[in-house]
């Protein structure tokens, strides 16, 4: 597939926002059960939510570039029964709304105990919102991932690993950002986040490498034989019917040379996993903001590469029909 930057940014930016939100809720949950103490939580959660919102908004903004008619974007809520894209379009703003409420509740300290229970599980409204938000957040991850995973003939995508990767990569980047954020805003949380960031990044490494290995062994169900319906071992296209390209040659081919394609794969494998892990490890003890920020930036850059590769690697069966200019 042709990696469209609008979609790369949509998915990675919103992944960061979602992960960061999850990190915030994680901290609050820890605090709620008394694992940790929070200092100045309203600023930490308020500003943290704002940052998450900014990432989500940037993602949303990027997504508009993907549309031919952004002014009609509202129409895309229509088919939530059948379309994961429609669902994503519904869930994303919903999620942003929840994040917004979550942040506002924290920032202004509006946090009545709605459940009427007290310790060890505090019945704060914000926590409740956070938990609801968590559910929606995962729903959003699932919607986004399923947009790709549900297309069965994009075999590289059509696997639960796609969902796992979206969740884990998004969450990892969010936690890495949270680590750096904590280093600035709440240094006592740095280690907690760093540890989680490392754990999630390692998990993501497992699922992502797993998917790479899986994709290496894919047996494509479609071939020129099924595409044109002629059974012969030697079928070669001589003309795709036009010479200077069309939507079908622009949208479904990455168009990069093989070396670039492979370089990008290695780039993301290095940038998303070992480098941030090392930086996290290095920055964890010292709460070195610069190092942790670097960890996030490197990982995010790696994710852009990862997402590029995710698209580029997907082999659309339609490409069987568009192979030769002649």
């Amino acid at each position: 597939m042709h990696p469209a930057f609008s979609v790369i940014f949509l998915t990675t930016l919103s992944g960061v926002g979602q992960g960061l939100f999850l990190a915030l809720v994680t901290a609050q949950s820890y605090a709620a059960v008394g694992f940790i103490e929070l200092e100045n939580p309203s600023a930490f959660f308020g500003i943290g939510s704002l940052i998450a919102l900014l990432f989500l908004a940037a993602g949303l903004f990027a997504s508009f570039f993907h549309l031919g008619h952004p002014e009609r974007a509202w129409r895309s809520i229509a088919r939530w029964r059948t379309s994961w894209l429609s669902r994503e379009v519904i869930v994303l703003p919903l999620f942003m709304g929840v994040v917004f409420i979550y942040g506002v509740l924290h920032y202004f300290g509006w946090d009545p105990n709605v459940l009427g229970v007290s310790n060890p599980l505090q019945g704060q409204l914000s926590l409740l919102v956070g938990l609801v938000g968590t559910v929606i957040c995962f729903a959003l991850f699932v919607c986004t991932a399923m947009i790709y995973a549900c297309i069965k003939f994009l075999q590289e995508w059509h696997t639960p690993l796609t969902v796992a990767n979206y969740i884990l990569l998004g969450t990892a980047s969010g936690f890495t950002l949270a680590t750096a954020y904590a280093a600035i805003q709440a240094p006592h949380l740095t280690t907690l986040y760093a540890v989680w960031a490392v754990i999630i990044t390692l998990s993501a490494l497992v699922t992502r490498v797993w998917s790479l290995l899986r994709n290496r062994r894919i047996q494509y169900k479609s071939s020129l034989r099924t595409a044109v319906g002629i059974s012969h071992s030697n079928i070669v296209q001589k003309s795709q019917g036009f010479m200077a390209g069309s939507f079908n040659t622009r949208e479904f081919f990455h168009g990069a040379p093989r070396q670039v394609f492979l370089a990008i794969k290695w780039a993301f494998l290095v940038l998303v996993f070992p480098v941030p892990l090392l930086l996290l490890a290095a920055g964890m003890g010292s709460s070195a903001v610069a190092v942790l920020l670097a960890a996030f930036l490197v990982q995010y850059a790696g994710l852009i590469a990862e997402r590029w590769f995710f698209f580029a690697q997907a082999n659309h069966p339609q490409n069987l029909y568009y192979q030769t200019v002649g």
């Binding site: 993907h66 031919g68 008619h69 952004p70 339609q318 029909y321």
Partner: peptide, 14 residues
């Protein structure tokens, strides 16, 4: 149509 191209991805035939 909003021009999201998603349907084209979902057509195996191009």
């Amino acid at each position: 149509c909003i021009g999201c191209k998603y349907c084209s991805w979902a057509c195996p035939y191009g």
